[in-house]
């Protein structure tokens, strides 16, 4: 079943500035689809269109599930709230019962291994911890669709790889579907069931690559020939689709 359907999505910021054109795609249940493309090609704009934060110029977005969660490039934590209160925020705003909030947040804190720092403020956390809080917050209302905008882009490779594994672990438990925008080809191959390559100006989907790797993915996968072959394939597609960069 498709959770998100995109039909002929186009976005122009003004008459001379077309960002997206003719985007057609379907996101299926339980799959992670990475969107990869050069900087400024409109990946974030597309996610914001799906989330309803930006209105498309033409085309249609059909969402077959209500609960959508957005994870920003920056962890986007409220600096005056503790880790626990930041994670609670979506539930507090939706006026959930306090006992239920406590229970859900405690479970999520354990899930992302942050129970020990639940009373810390964002400034006391490392970049990786901040991102884990951000992801935990996005899971509070048990979303069916996750939209992630380069969530691990500002982290070092070690932290990023660790969070990639954590991310897959969460996905396995909660079974949501996700659009995952990234600049990293290796990250896209590691996380996704499909990878969409965007061409630049105006951006459109030029290639969809299926990632037929085993479902259980660990660090060791990064050394496997089939993984490396896919990385090379995505890299090649990205280069020929954007031969001007």
């Amino acid at each position: 079943m498709s959770l998100v359907q995109l039909y002929s999505i186009a976005k122009n910021f003004d008459e001379n500035r077309s960002v997206l054109t003719d985007i057609n795609f379907e996101l299926n249940e339980h799959e992670i689809v990475s969107i990869i493309g050069p900087s400024g090609c409109g990946k974030t704009t597309l996610l914001k269109i799906i989330a309803g934060l930006v209105k498309q110029t033409s085309g249609e977005v059909i969402l077959n599930k209500d609960e959508i969660s957005f994870v920003f490039q920056d962890a986007a934590l409220l600096p005056w709230l503790t880790v626990r209160k930041n994670i609670e925020l979506p539930l507090t705003l939706a006026k959930f019962d306090e006992n239920q909030i406590d229970l859900t947040v405690s479970e999520l804190l354990e899930l992302v291994n942050l129970s020990d720092v639940s009373n810390y403020y964002p400034w006391q956390l490392s970049g990786g911890m901040k991102m884990r809080v951000s992801i935990a917050r996005s899971l509070t209302k048990s979303p069916q669709i996750m939209l992630l905008d380069e969530p691990f882009g500002s982290l070092d490779v070690m932290t990023r790889n660790k969070l990639n594994e954590d991310f897959l672990r969460l996905h396995e438990k909660q079974k949501w579907s996700a659009f995952f925008v990234t600049h990293s080809i290796t990250e896209a191959v590691f996380l996704s069931s499909r990878i969409v390559v965007l061409a630049k100006k105006p951006a459109t989907f030029v290639k969809v690559i299926n990632v037929n790797l085993p479902f259980q993915r660990t660090e060791k996968l990064r050394e496997q020939p089939e993984y490396l072959k896919l990385v090379a394939e995505v890299s090649h597609e990205l280069r020929i689709s954007n031969n001007d960069i």
């Binding site: 914001k48 989330a51 934060l53 959508i68 969660s69 957005f70 920003f72 920056d74 986007a76 409220l78 925020l89 979506p90 507090t92 705003l93 939706a94």
Partner: peptide, 19 residues
């Protein structure tokens, strides 16, 4: 970004102001 974050939670103007 924080304003957009709250928009994704479909908050009211009052909630945006208060929180």
């Amino acid at each position: 970004i924080l304003v957009e974050l709250l928009k994704t939670y479909r908050v009211s103007k009052f909630q945006e102001m208060f929180y």
